[in-house]
């Protein structure tokens, strides 16, 4: 075996420093905004955020490509406006929102969340958005609303990857109602204080930080409250690999990627993966009494 000389490993620190530099530069005016909610919402330190460059050049977005480094380019032709979001199903007040009205109605806040992809990498992302709970409460879910189904956009003419049938389009995801109402669950409208870039799921996506990234559906057009558990795109593709809950869990194996550790983008070596991606204090109580190795 050929050992890696330590001189070759040094760049890890250089990488980290560069990341901090760019993060500081990019944050600049927004730094004040970012501080407060982060302290308030995440007791655990999420670590320094990744750079805008890292966040916008490494995107797992099958609608464009399964190649994460090609997505930003392929997404250039996507048109995030005009956009409507329909909230329907088991609600007393269904409503179709125009994007601009939605942004006016719900005040945006900045939150720095960890993101853990099922493919064994992670980032720290300064999202901007509003709690999904505020939107759902305004629509008054009925007593039959047990789950929430999210449906993404279907535009094969603008989304190159949708011309391949790797997944069922449009992409669908789902949450249990209490997960959807959890204060950490965010409807994301921006990144680093700017409108959301196309490759990150413009104009509206979810951020569910204690679950694998594929639960945080991008480019949402429809939110449907339903009584039975919806089938998600990834469950349909490979139910044994991608469960409905998909909570970040080092004890549930995946055949291709280790879920015990992850590479934080910007670092060279892997670090341990935390249960619920480090949000156990906030969300573990949602699952009391469940065996999460079976309900993965």
């Amino acid at each position: 075996m050929v050992p890696i000389p330590s001189s070759l490993i040094t760049p890890e620190r250089v990488w980290r420093e560069r990341r901090l530099w760019i993060a500081a530069a990019a944050l600049g005016p927004a730094a004040g905004l970012l501080g407060a909610p982060r302290e308030a919402l995440a007791a655990t330190d999420v670590g320094p955020p990744n750079t805008l460059e890292q966040i916008t050049r490494y995107n797992n977005y099958y609608e464009f490509s399964s190649n994460k480094e090609a997505v930003w380019k392929l997404a250039e032709g996507f048109k995030p406006t005009p956009w409507t979001l329909a909230v329907e199903g088991e609600v007393e007040r269904p409503k179709t929102w125009d994007l601009a009205d939605l942004l006016k109605r719900y005040p945006q806040e900045d939150r720095v969340y960890r993101l853990r992809c099922v493919e064994g990498w992670g980032m720290v992302v300064p999202w901007r958005g509003f709690p999904l709970a505020s939107l759902l409460k305004d629509c008054a879910p009925t007593s039959r609303a047990k789950f929430v189904e999210f449906v993404s956009v279907n535009r094969p003419e603008e989304m190159f990857g949708q011309r391949m049938k790797a997944l069922r389009w449009p992409y669908t995801e789902g949450l249990r109602i209490d997960e959807a109402m959890h204060p950490l669950t965010l409807v994301v409208t921006g990144l680093y204080g700017q409108p959301l870039p196309n490759q990150n799921g413009a104009p509206l996506r979810l951020a569910v930080p204690w679950k694998y990234g594929f639960k945080s559906i991008k480019a949402i057009t429809r939110i449907r409250l339903v009584e039975t558990r919806p089938e998600t795109s990834w469950q349909r593709a490979a139910a044994s690999e991608y469960g409905f809950y998909a909570n970040v869990n080092p004890d549930v194996h995946h055949p291709r990627w280790s879920q015990k550790r992850e590479v934080r983008i910007g670092e060279m070596a892997k670090r341990p993966t935390l249960p619920f991606n480090g949000y156990a204090d906030e969300v573990a109580s949602l699952y009391t009494g469940m065996d999460l190795r079976l309900d993965y």
Partner: peptide, 15 residues
């Protein structure tokens, strides 16, 4: 090695 030294391994160097 050149990619490594010039920081050109991409966003996920390990991969």
């Amino acid at each position: 090695v050149a990619e490594w030294w010039t920081d050109a391994l991409g966003v996920n160097p390990l991969n």
